[in-house]
Each structure stands twice: as structure tokens, then as C-alpha cells.
Computed example of a mutant assay.
Amino acid sequence: MPEIAGYEGGPLVDGSRFLDTPLFWPCHLGASLRGEEAQANALGPDWDDAQELSATLASPGAWPVFTVPLHSGYVLHVVYRNWDGDHGVDYLLLHPDWPRAVTLAAVDGHFMGPGLSWAELEASAGLDATTGVTDPDARLLLLFPMLGDADVPQGAAPRLASALEALTVVEDPAGLARTLLVNQGLWSPARWRDAHGTRVCDGSHSYRNPLNGFALPAPQLAAAAEALNGR
């Protein structure tokens, strides 16, 4: 059973078995599939199967965990946090020297985020890894729900579409990629900037906005920037 330092919760289980299930990805990206048209484009005729899979992912008896190695020894744990009546997905940053993980984003009814910019998402997805989730496309889609970026580059949609085409069976990956980028996250897209060598944003629900009263302390803000973009 996986363990995450300082993370109290239910029965954590290795979620890697879901990575080769094409329907997992539209379920995982569901927060950005707002509206019937978006859901229909993502799920096609598989609506009932998607509902069943979503119920499995949200089971209180097993909390799937996906581990994404990052720069400088950091890892990001993607945890399906399945308290009975209160489930969501937590994105937890951890370093071997830390006594406990810190939350970068949470996708649920009381959402917190964004947790990263597009540049950080792409850099983290492309990082070579030999443990945890190693496939760049899987890493991109796993971390995508953390995204909140008002200035995504033109290359974002084709890169996202390529990952969707590789891992899903959606009929129009390019169209779905555009939809996801328009509806990114449960929060408003944020603007990112460098502040004293640390990447921060202006998101009103983000732990990475130093102006928020609940923001990460300065050392952890710097750590997040280092972990996600090698700074």
C-alpha cells in the first residue's frame, strides 16, 4: 500500500492499472468537461461505462494514487481522496527531506488552484523518469487538471491533442483539446510571473499566489517552482 508522508486519509492503492484504460482519461479530465456537448465529445457512447468507472475511482474503500517524479528529487502524488460524501483529487508535492507533503491543488467542490502554468505542465510531462508514471502523455494528462494559465501558447492545443490521441479513443482529440484549454480547471485562468526567482500567479484560489493568506510559505513556493520547471 502506498504511503505519503504527512497525508492522513484512507486506503491508498496504486492507481497505475487505470493508465492503460482509455476511458480513465475523460473521467480524470471531467472538471474541464463542462456542458453536455463537451461531455458527449469526450465520452461518445461510453457514458454508462464512464459512470461506472467514476464510481470505482471514487470508492471509499480504495484511494488510487499516481506518482509523477519531478526535478531535484521532488515527486507529485495525484490522489483520489475518497472520504464518504467528500471525494476529490489532491495534488501533493513531496521531497524526501520534507516531513509531510504540501497541497498544490485540489479538484473538488471546495477547489483550490491553479497549481501550475502551461510551461510547467509541459516541462514536467517531458521530464525523463524511470519510476512512477513515466509516459510523457500520461504525465501531461494526469497533471492537466492543475492547470490555470491565461496565456497558453499556440502549441498547447496540438500538444494536448497528441496526448489525447495517444491515450484515448475520442473521435476528435483536437476539438477536445481546445475545449479543455478553454475550460481549464474549476478556477479562473491565472497570470504567472517571476517574483525574486520564484514562479507565482495571481489566482485567488491558488496556494502559489503569495498575496493569498493561505499561500505556501516562501521556501515552499520556491520549491514548487524548482520541482515543476527545474528552477
Results as ranks from 00 to 15, higher is better:
Leu216Met: 04
Ala50Met: 00
Trp187Ile: 07
Phe66Pro: 03
Ser32Ala: 15
Glu37Asp: 15
Ala129Tyr: 09
Ala50Thr: 00
Thr56Val: 15
Glu36Met: 12
Gly30Glu: 11
Met1His: 07
Arg100Val: 06
Ser162Ile: 03
Ala5Ile: 05
Phe214Gln: 15
Asp97Gly: 03
Met112Lys: 08
Leu23Met: 02
Leu116His: 15
Met146Lys: 00
Phe214Ala: 13
Asp135Ala: 12
Asp149Ile: 08
Val182Asn: 15
Gly88Asp: 09
Val200Pro: 12
Ser117Asn: 05
Arg159Met: 13
Leu142Thr: 09
Val75Met: 11
Pro26Glu: 10
Ile4Asp: 05
Phe24Ala: 11
Glu37Asn: 11
Val78Trp: 04
Gly132Asn: 09
Ala58Tyr: 05
Leu76Cys: 15
Glu37Lys: 14
Ala195Lys: 12
Gly115Leu: 00
Gly155Cys: 01
Met112Gln: 12
Ala42Ser: 06
Val133Leu: 13
Trp47Asn: 00
Gly197Met: 12
Leu180Trp: 01
Val13Ile: 04
His77Gly: 10
Arg100Cys: 05
Pro189Trp: 06
Leu211Ile: 10
Glu36Asn: 12
Trp98Thr: 01
Leu176Gly: 04
Leu43Gln: 09
Phe24Leu: 10
Val78Pro: 08
Arg100Gln: 14
Ser162Gln: 14
His77Glu: 10
Pro45Gly: 12
Leu12Asp: 04
Val79Cys: 04
Leu228Ser: 04
Gly185Ala: 11
Gly155Met: 02
Pro210Phe: 06
Pro26Arg: 14
Asp48Val: 06
Glu36Leu: 14
Ala105Ser: 08
Thr198Asn: 11
Asn82Val: 05
Leu141Cys: 02
Met112His: 06
Gly9His: 09
Gly175Cys: 00
Ser16Val: 12
Leu160Phe: 10
Leu93Lys: 02
Ala101Leu: 13
Met112Val: 15
Gly35Ile: 02
Gln184Tyr: 11
Thr67Asn: 07
Ala215Gln: 12
Gly85Ser: 10
Val89Tyr: 09
Leu127Trp: 07
